[in-house]
Simulated assay, not measured.
Amino acid sequence: MFRLNQKDIEAYHQRYFRPSCLRALNLRFSTWDFFASFYDKIHDQIKVPPQLTLTPEDTVLNYFSILREAENMYDRGCGTIGQAKLPFPIAYNFLSQEYQNKLSYKEYVHLFSGIGHTSLIKLCRFPDRKRGIRFFYEIETIEGAEGKKAEYFGYSYGFISLLKEQEGFRISEMNRIEEDFLCAPYHGWNHDGETVVDVKYGHWCHLIEHIYPTIRNEYIKSIYFHGKDGADYCIIFALLTNGTDIEIAQFRKAGNEEWKQVHMMPEEDCAGE
Rank of each mutant, 00 (worst) to 15 (best):
F2W: 14
F2T: 14
R3A: 14
R3C: 14
N5D: 15
Q6C: 01
Q6V: 03
K7S: 12
Y12R: 08
Y16P: 05
R18K: 08
P19T: 08
P19I: 13
L22Y: 12
A24K: 09
L25Q: 01
L25W: 09
F34A: 06
F38I: 03
D40S: 03
K41V: 01
I42Q: 12
L54C: 07
D58T: 10
L61N: 07
N62V: 02
F64Q: 03
S65M: 13
E69D: 12
M73P: 00
Y74L: 07
D75E: 08
C78E: 11
T80H: 06
G82D: 09
A84I: 01
A84N: 15
K85H: 12
L86H: 03
A91C: 13
Y92T: 03
Y92E: 02
L95F: 15
Q97S: 15
N101H: 15
N101T: 12
S104T: 14
K106V: 05
K106R: 13
Y108Q: 02
L111T: 08
G116M: 12
T118E: 13
L120E: 01
I121R: 04
I121N: 06
K122W: 11
L123M: 13
C124K: 11
R125N: 13
R129A: 14
K130M: 14
R134M: 10
T141N: 10
A145V: 04
E146N: 07
A150K: 12
E151K: 06
E151Y: 01
Y155S: 08
Y157A: 02
F159K: 06
I160C: 06
E167C: 01
R170Y: 07
M174N: 13
M174F: 05
R176K: 06
F181P: 01
F181T: 08
C183I: 14
P185W: 05
H187Y: 08
W189G: 02
H191E: 10
E194C: 09
E194R: 14
K200I: 15
H203P: 05
H203M: 11
W204R: 01
C205K: 06
C205L: 10
L207F: 05
P213A: 02
N217D: 12
Y219C: 03
I220G: 06
K221H: 00
S222P: 07
S222M: 01
Y224V: 04
Y224D: 00
A231K: 07
Y233T: 11
I236T: 15
F237Q: 00
L240W: 11
T241G: 14
N242L: 09
N242I: 11
G243F: 15
W259D: 09
M264G: 04
E268S: 10
E268M: 11
